[in-house]
Design a protein around this nucleic acid. Structure first.
Length: 379
DNA sequence: AATGCGTGGGC
DNA sequence: TGCCCAAGCAT
């Protein structure tokens, strides 16, 4: 059923939705830490952290980030590496860099706080349509409707709109509906209520329609199969790569290098390595990649651990090799800032998850001075 | 408009 | 296990 045959959003239906959903929200909303804050900066951090990230993860990480960077000035005054370290493990690291850059932009412009206006927020790095509306409404009470994945699911079902949600026409329909429904005097609560409904009752697979405050007016439920919505195109298969990297030791210290700021895992540190080419052995790939990135010719490698890891759009197996550096200083050929660091310094650097997991396995398998040495096989 | 960008949990 | 999904953004 398409939206064209959906019952129009008449004023009575809108009033009913607002009243019923807000009443339900007041009674059933989860006790989330950021809901106790009225600080626009803290709310902003929570919204950025929540982008494509589970509430249960943010529940733990948001207080720690706020303790580390309590206000706009603290964040703006930090180094990018410090911010990335606080973001380690959260993924989508570009978010952290944009958060930092936006804070610096604001402070340099003499601002003591975030702007309250949706359009002004939208102009800052890392503020898309969603985050601008979320901060404007939740922190400043502005009547700006949010549209996130929850809202798409709740409203396509509410309207029984079976259009492809990646198309502009459906996006516009959902945005317009979200804005029409928004309770203007409780904009922040309303937005959170729709998202809360999507997160707890109107879930992708097994919605609890019997408990839904919108069930009376839900066209998707009336049509019988709300779980078929929202409609989205099938995902393409994700490729797999083998990555070979070196744990390159010199005098009890380990070689690490920083990834370039843009792209995958931008700004994080890693052990030099890269993709194995077709027909190439893992050890040959390890040797080639270490040389290409740092200029160091490193022989005599011994395989020590392999880690399977899934990124958003491909999967890898990370194969690590213990090896010993010969003479010569590493150069920033195809990496940034290569350096040997002590094992006790590893905790100071932001590493991608796969690297961190490899270190954990090695430490569990052996210990100092060479993080185990022998072969440890993770999965 | 289509892609690239992390990670962890659920089934 | 493999796939989907989660309070998106930038290019």
């Amino acid at each position: 059923m398409t939206a064209t045959r959906t019952a129009p959003l008449d004023p009575a239906r809108i009033r009913r939705a607002r009243r019923n959903l807000l009443r339900w929200y007041d009674a059933h909303k989860r006790d989330l830490p950021w809901r106790h804050s009225r600080d626009p900066y803290a709310i902003w951090v929570s919204e950025v952290m929540l982008q494509q990230t589970r509430v249960e993860t943010v529940r733990e990480r948001w207080p720690a980030f706020l303790a580390r960077f309590p206000d706009l000035a603290a964040l703006a005054g930090a180094s990018e590496q410090e911010v990335l370290k606080a973001w380690e493990g959260l993924g989508y690291y570009r978010r952290a860099r944009f958060l930092h850059r936006a804070a610096q932009t604001l402070v340099e412009g003499g601002a003591a706080c975030l702007p309250a206006d949706r359009e002004a927020l939208r102009a800052l790095p890392g503020f898309g349509a969603y985050t601008a509306a979320a901060v404007a409404s939740i922190a400043f009470g502005q009547p700006a409707a949010v549209v996130d994945g929850n809202v798409y699911r709740v409203l396509t079902r509410y309207l029984d709109d079976d259009g492809d949600i990646t198309t502009a026409a459906v996006k516009r329909r959902i945005e317009d509906t979200a804005q029409a429904l928004l309770a203007p005097r409780r904009a922040g609560d309303w937005n959170q209520a729709v998202m809360e409904l999507g997160a707890t009752l109107c879930t992708p697979r097994r919605p609890r329609c019997e408990a839904c405050p919108l069930r009376r007016d839900c066209a998707g439920l009336a049509a019988g199969e709300p779980t078929r919505l929202p409609c989205k195109p099938a995902r393409k298969a994700t490729p797999h790569h083998d990555i070979a990297a070196g744990l390159v030791w010199r005098d009890g210290r380990l070689l690490i290098a920083r990834r370039k700021a843009d792209g995958l895992l931008g700004g994080l540190w890693e052990f030099p390595g890269g993709k194995r080419r077709q027909g190439e052995s893992l050890e040959a790939a390890r040797r080639r990649e270490v040389q290409e990135e740092t200029g160091l010719v490193v022989e005599q490698a011994e395989p020590c651990v392999s880690i399977d890891h899934a990124y958003s759009h491909f999967r890898i197996t990370l194969h690590l090799f213990h090896c010993t550096a010969g003479p010569g200083e590493p150069q920033a050929v195809a990496c940034e800032d290569p350096r040997f660091i002590g094992v006790d310094e590893l905790a100071d650097y932001p590493f991608p998850r796969a690297n961190r997991r490899a270190l954990d396995l090695l430490q569990a398998g052996g210990g100092a001075p060479d993080l185990g040495g022998g072969a440890v096989h993770g999965d």
